[in-house]
Design a protein around this nucleic acid. Structure first.
Lengths: 342, 342
DNA sequence: GCGTTGCATTAAATCGGTTTAGTATGACTA
DNA sequence: TAGTCATACTAAACCGATTTAATGCAACGC
């Protein structure tokens, strides 16, 4: 219960003013021509008593908090969790801390969160934005806070973002399935007006159109309760038994999809071929392993934080950067043609 | 770039003192007998101009930040990510925000993090503690901050915690394997002096001893680089080809273990039976599905946050609560006996 | 008419820093 | 000997809230 040491205590002990202590601690000793001897005495005492400036007081005065607000769709999703982890590491090195929140893709909740971040004076924002959040993001930018979007972007808002080439990714994956000889290829995804989802649908549609194939698109509403995702997929696949391949729109969708396929007793890829967006352990370890579109997670995280740190350094000055990275189609089972050759 | 409204602006507009505004906004109007008429006028203006108190200033004065520090081993691990998510939700409802960090089980890093949380005046701590952090936790408690540990605890520190019955869980899982007819059962886990790992080893050992079987224990050093986990497991299994069953100490270990088993071309469970601590999609979707020890994630998260919120309300008064929850062995393939009957 | 009490409100201190605008001292110039 | 300048440091304002200790005023009892 010992009271915390403040800058005044340091100043009093040495019979100097707290201004001096502050200057020294902020590396302005030279500039303010404070004698080396005094600098040393102060630093020695500070170390001795383990004095740490109160960062709240500091933030209040300077307006800087050294905190970055991170808003993802759902931190328990492996894609977002991995990105969050990598961002955390890089930010930590630079003295920034992360406050994170899951938006659930809910615009209202996200607005709340922005308000809360705002009045906590976070220095910058990293966000996988839900739809209809344009005005709020614009208002952040207008008030001088850097914002970096990722995973999806807001076409109407001029800001930095890091995304992947969703359209080409699904186009490519669909092409792959077509080349394997599948023709009744379904695309199952979350219903969403967000850029990444629209692009993924478009890629799929384009490939199918090009091959003159009929499209099978099933959109499922997002829900925290997995049962409510599994059920409509189940119904859809049951109602369309001719479907011989499925492209899933996200890792979560893919995972749920595999559960359905198991339930239905279908064999991958003989009964039904599967490709999923996002690549993680579930797909790698599935037997047979599932082909997946791998996002370059490290590169994404790296670009996000580099972009944001640059803005934070430069006082948010320079121009916007819109970064689009390419994905990798990890082909895992050559299926049909190869007919269990291995 | 409009300057933010402060409490003084509100006070000036209405020609009253900021004290009055503060009282009203903090629900102390009645107590301070401020006329209803004035209360209404203030609230009306506040709403009109969208005034939000600056929470930094508030925290500086009150010493309360409404922030909870959450320290997990690695936020990208599904177990911790799920817990974090559930805690976040509950805390959010109650007006608390979460700052999280991954400790990597590194004592030094954790000490850094504690220092940083401390000088940001977080109101409470939730932590999956690394080893040798006893003194730091004690010092937090001494300075009046509530701390709730989870996943593991510090036997030497008197504090609240929420854990599962690790020893019984692995005992039970090992018994299960023995009853299935396996006898060369290995336990592969991370090398660690922490309570949860020690207990898991003990549970395994007890079951083996009871059955008069020889133990096979492999401890692997934790590393962020998955390759460095996979490699030793690979070497171990290759060197001990008689092993017919493996119990993995954590989900991460289990995932890496399955990768090795795939690499070696072994079939589960005919060549080698697998049980893992922690249950998640990878194990459920593996074919054949893998038996796993499921921790009651919701209940754990719920208990943690309930415990902490109670302490935060009561000024950290009452006694310690040590909660031990039981796990569930999700048996997924009856293996040997049933001989692919399905 | 004077002291007491209740009411409605507020001035000023405080939290712990940073920053602005000085000040005191001695050396050097003219 | 007064004026300028560099040096080494500091008093006080400030960030935006909360909280303590008062204050002015009206009504009331005696």
């Amino acid at each position: 219960m010992t009271k915390k040491i403040s800058i005044v205590d340091i100043a009093n002990t040495l019979n100097i003013s707290k201004t001096t202590v502050s200057f020294i601690l902020n590396g302005r000793a030279q500039e303010k021509r404070i004698s080396e001897e005094l600098v040393e005495r102060v630093l020695k005492l500070v170390k001795e008593v383990g004095y740490k400036p109160n960062s709240l007081a500091k933030s209040l005065r300077t307006g800087k908090s050294n905190i970055i607000g991170l808003m993802v769709e759902d931190i328990s999703n492996p894609f977002f969790a991995s990105i969050a982890r990598l961002i955390e590491d890089r930010a930590y090195e630079k003295g920034y801390r992360i406050i994170y929140c899951s938006t659930d893709n809910d615009t209202g909740k996200t607005q709340d969160l922005i308000t809360m971040f705002r009045d906590r004076h976070v220095d910058g924002y990293i966000m996988a934005p839900p739809s209809n959040i344009d005005d709020d993001v614009r208002s952040l930018l207008k008030s001088g806070s850097p914002v970096v979007l990722f995973d999806r972007y807001l076409p109407e808002v001029e800001t930095d973002y890091v995304v992947v080439d969703n359209q080409f990714s699904t186009y490519n994956a669909t092409r792959h399935l077509i080349e394997q000889g599948y023709s009744k290829i379904a695309f199952i995804t979350f219903s969403s007006q967000q850029s990444q989802m629209m692009d993924r649908v478009t890629g799929y549609k384009n490939a199918m159109k090009e091959a003159k194939l009929k499209t099978f698109i099933k959109e499922v509403d997002f829900n925290r309760n997995e049962e409510l995702i599994i059920e409509p997929i189940h119904a859809y696949l049951k109602k369309n038994p001719t479907i011989d391949a499925v492209l899933f729109g996200t890792d979560h969708m893919g995972t749920c999809g595999l559960k359905v396929i198991n339930q239905l007793g279908l064999k991958v890829p003989d009964d039904i071929a599967v490709v999923s967006f996002d690549d993680y352990d579930v797909f790698k370890l599935h037997s047979p392993p599932v082909t997946a579109i791998a996002q370059p997670i490290e590169t994404i995280a790296d670009n996000i934080i580099t972009l944001l740190l640059k803005k934070l350094d430069n006082g948010n000055a320079q121009t916007m950067q819109k970064i689009t990275l390419s994905t990798n189609l990890n082909i895992r089972n050559s299926s049909k043609q190869v007919v269990k050759a291995v």
